[in-house]
Design a protein around this nucleic acid. Structure first.
Length: 289
DNA sequence: AACATTTGCAACCGCACTCGG
DNA sequence: CCCGAGTGCGGTTGCAAATGT
C-alpha cells in the first residue's frame, strides 16, 4: 500500500516535470535545425547526460531530449550505416564498427568505453570553459537565448565565414547548418579581409591550405548541401581548380537555404561523409570519428 | 478493410544522492 | 552516524497512433 502511494506520488511528479509543466514546448513539435545542431554539439561535449543537455535547451525536458536522441538521431545513424554509439561506419556484415568483429562485451569494447569516458571528461572541462566564455560574452543576454549560446559553443564568430560575410548580422537561423559546416571545413579559418572577393578567398584557402584528399561527399538526392563544396563523387578529391569553382555553388546554397526557412531539418543534410585532413566527421552529428 | 509493423513518446523502474530527524 | 523519505537521473518498456502490406 505504502509502496503504491510512493509510486503514485513519483508518477505525478514525473508527469508534471515531463508533460504537464507549462514552461515546456508543445508536444510533437519538430526540432528546428539550429536547435538540433546545438543539441548535437551538446551531445559531443557532455555525452548522454540528458539533464545537463536539457538545462541548455530552453523548454525541453531531459526526457524529451533523451527520446529525441533515441528515436531520431540514433536511428538515422543506423540507417546511414553508422554505429549509433561510436558514430563510426559499420564496415562488417556483423555491424561492428571500425572493421572489428569483436563482440561488444569484450575487452576491446571496454577499452573504447574507457577512451570515451576520458574524452567525455576532457570535453566536460572544455564545456565548463565554454560556459564561462559564454557568461562573459553574453552577460547582457537572456539565458534562454540558445542561439547566442550556440554561437559560442559552435565556436563560430559572426564576423567570419562566408555565410556571415554574405548575410551579415541578418543571416537567417536556418543557415546555422552552413555555419556549422564552415566550422568543420575551416577549423583554422581566420578573419579574411572581407568584401565581395571573400567567397573566392574562402575557396582559395581551401585549395591552398589543405592537401587532397581534403573532403569527399556522397549524396543520394539532387540538392545536396555538399554540392556547395564539392562536385566530385565519393572517393575523388579536390583538384587545383576547385578553389575557383566554389563561388557559384556557395551563392546557390545560400539562395536555396534562404527559401527553406526554418523548416529545414538536420536530417535533410545527413547524407554525406566528410573527410578532412585525413579525419572523418559524422555527417549527422558532426562528431569526429 | 484488415492485419502487421513501425514510430514516437509518456511512463515506469531502479539506482544514487540529499537532507532532516 | 544511521535511517527513511524525497528527489534526480538515465535506461528501458508499453502502448497508442501512424504507416505499410
Amino acid at each position: 500500500m505504502i509502496t503504491g502511494l510512493q509510486r503514485f506520488c513519483k508518477c505525478c511528479r514525473l508527469r508534471w516535470r515531463n508533460y504537464l509543466r507549462p514552461d515546456i514546448k508543445g508536444h510533437g513539435l519538430i526540432w528546428p535545425l539550429d536547435e538540433a545542431l546545438f543539441f548535437n554539439r551538446l551531445i559531443e561535449l557532455i555525452s548522454s547526460r540528458w539533464s545537463a543537455i536539457a538545462a541548455h535547451l530552453p523548454k525541453r525536458t531531459d526526457n524529451e531530449v533523451k527520446n529525441y536522441w533515441h528515436s531520431r538521431l540514433k536511428k538515422l545513424l543506423a540507417l546511414k550505416g553508422y554505429d549509433p554509439v561510436t558514430h563510426k561506419p559499420k564496415t562488417t556484415i556483423f555491424g561492428f564498427a571500425n572493421g572489428s568483429t569483436d563482440d561488444p562485451k569484450t575487452g576491446s569494447n571496454l577499452n573504447h568505453i574507457a577512451q570515451w569516458e576520458s574524452a567525455r571528461l576532457q570535453a566536460e572541462a572544455r564545456f565548463v570553459g565554454d560556459l564561462e566564455l559564454h557568461k562573459q560574452a553574453y552577460h547582457p543576454h537572456n539565458n534562454n537565448d540558445i542561439f547566442a549560446t550556440s554561437s559560442i559553443l559552435f565556436g563560430h564568430n559572426k564576423d567570419v565565414g562566408p555565410t556571415d560575410q554574405l548575410f551579415g548580422q541578418n543571416a537567417p537561423q536556418c543557415l546555422d547548418m552552413l555555419r556549422a559546416w564552415e566550422i568543420i571545413l575551416l577549423p583554422n579559418y581566420s578573419k579574411a579581409t572581407g568584401g565581395q572577393d571573400h567567397v573566392n578567398s574562402f575557396g582559395n584557402r581551401l585549395a591552398s591550405d589543405f592537401e587532397p584528399p581534403i573532403i569527399s561527399a556522397i549524396s543520394n538526392n539532387g540538392s545536396s548541401l555538399m554540392d556547395c563544396f564539392v562536385h566530385e563523387p565519393v572517393g575523388q578529391c579536390f583538384d587545383e581548380n576547385y578553389g575557383t569553382s566554389i563561388t557559384e555553388p556557395f551563392a546557390t546554397i545560400h539562395h536555396n537555404m534562404g527559401f527553406k526557412n526554418n523548416g529545414a531539418c538536420l536530417e535533410d543534410f545527413g547524407l554525406w561523409e566528410i573527410i578532412m585532413q585525413g579525419k572523418k566527421y559524422c555527417p549527422i552529428s558532426g562528431i569526429s570519428m
